[in-house]
Computed example of a mutant assay.
Amino acid sequence: MRNKRWVGLWFLLVSTTHAYDFSHCQKYYELASRSNSVSLFWQKGQVSFLHSTTPPKGVRILKKDPFIGFYLIQAPHTKFAYHLLDISPEAFKYPMASVSKTYARVGTITKRQERFLGHARFSVPIAPNGVVGNICYQIYGVGFKSKDPHAFIESKYIRRFLSQNTPYYGDIGVRVRSHGALVVELVDPFFKNNPFLEGDVITHINGQAIPNSARFEWVVSNLAYQSEAHVTIKRKGVSQTLHVRVDKRHGGFLLPDTFLERFGVVLDSDLVITARLEHLPAPLNTLRVGDQLVWINHKPIAPKRANHADKLRALQEALSHARMQGRIELLLLRRGLEFYIRL
């Protein structure tokens, strides 16, 4: 009944003033948010959602997706909350607004979200945890702290997060780039029975055309775990279909992605192992906390002065390229002693 009264007021203001006035939605926002989160209706209840690129401090985390920085936190229920709506052509028939505690500004969606980290954009700024909508209690997305004040997260991606018990992103063992076509750039050497080669061109997955990396990201991320994916590729101009058992991603997006994450390997800025799973298959069980990764196939992994992110990227590239060479010989430094292991 409360929400019905708010939408009734919305239509009343439209009809009496012949213009859309979203100022009353600020009051609704104050009653449907807290300083660090926004309240959403979900499964006949209410949840407190926030976005953060690092784990939020000073709150109890109930659910998390560190791949893309989504969190549900424990918080007292607010008087009101929001229903999530997917953006459809119908949404563009009515004016929209960016709403927060301090303002309600009319605008329009200028860019749809195409990737998990490639967010949508609104024509006017959106405050962190501000909302975008055209009715007070229904929203198309949520703002977040970003270098781009116009960026927001579409409800489609929030709904995906809410519907999962644990974060899941399907993986078929490759990293790709759009270069006129969708090209396999890197191949995971630890992905079981990986049939891909660097340079393969992916055209279809399970009969769906895959024109670019954004479409690849969404389709692959939503493939069912351990299902068989039928991937059509062109290799040296010849079409063929590969059959791949879908795995899950262990790194990527906001998390490190070197291909070693499936083994729980964490590396510092000097490529020194700071953590690993207790039980690893041979020969990876040779790895120890404190070991430094130095060379792969007799080549330095990265320049010593490179930053942490660049070193991790260089390691991922080196592992993929070594796999293409048919061997991975890893030089480790342990307590001043250098030695090779073959993976």
Rank of each mutant, 00 (worst) to 15 (best):
T166A: 09
L31A: 10
V59H: 05
V7Q: 13
Q292P: 06
N193K: 08
Q316N: 12
R276P: 10
R160Q: 10
S48H: 14
W10M: 07
D21M: 02
K64D: 15
C136L: 02
G252C: 04
L9I: 14
G143K: 03
H24P: 05
F259D: 00
K101L: 11
E114F: 11
N222T: 13
A229F: 07
D21V: 08
Q26W: 02
A309S: 14
I87W: 01
F80I: 10
R288Q: 08
P167L: 01
L284E: 07
R235P: 10
Q226N: 12
L117W: 08
A91C: 15
L72D: 04
Y140F: 11
D148N: 12
T274G: 01
K311V: 11
V219C: 11
A151P: 01
K111V: 09
V238C: 08
N212F: 10
D148H: 02
V132T: 00
H298S: 15
S39I: 01
Y28P: 15
K111W: 07
L62G: 08
P281D: 03
K311R: 14
I126L: 13
M1C: 14
V289R: 12
L223S: 03
S48G: 13
G133P: 00
H243V: 13
L267N: 01
F49G: 03
L162C: 06
H250F: 12
V246G: 03
A322R: 03
K63S: 06
G251A: 02
I341G: 10
P211Q: 07
K4F: 15
A127P: 03
R177N: 00
K156N: 15
L242S: 07
E114D: 11
S98I: 05
N307M: 04
K111P: 04
Y137D: 13
R5K: 13
S33L: 01
R5P: 15
V142D: 00
K63P: 09
R245L: 15
Y340R: 09
A19V: 05
A214F: 09
A318M: 09
L117V: 09
L186A: 06
N134L: 08
L333R: 04
R334I: 05
L9A: 14
S88W: 10
F253A: 06
T232N: 04
F190L: 07
I87K: 00
F161V: 02
V220E: 00
D188N: 11
T78Q: 05
N165F: 11
Q164Y: 02
N134P: 07
R215V: 13
K64F: 14
I172G: 01
D270E: 11
L162T: 04
D268A: 08
I233K: 03
D21G: 09
A104L: 09
R34H: 11
H250G: 09
D200S: 05
G133R: 00
S33E: 02
K44I: 11
H308W: 09
Q164G: 00
P256D: 12
E338G: 03
Q113V: 03
A75W: 05
H83E: 13
G130H: 03
R112H: 12
G130R: 02
F152D: 01
P281Y: 05
L62A: 04
L315I: 00
I68F: 02
E154Q: 05
G290C: 12
M1T: 10
Q208L: 15
F339Y: 13
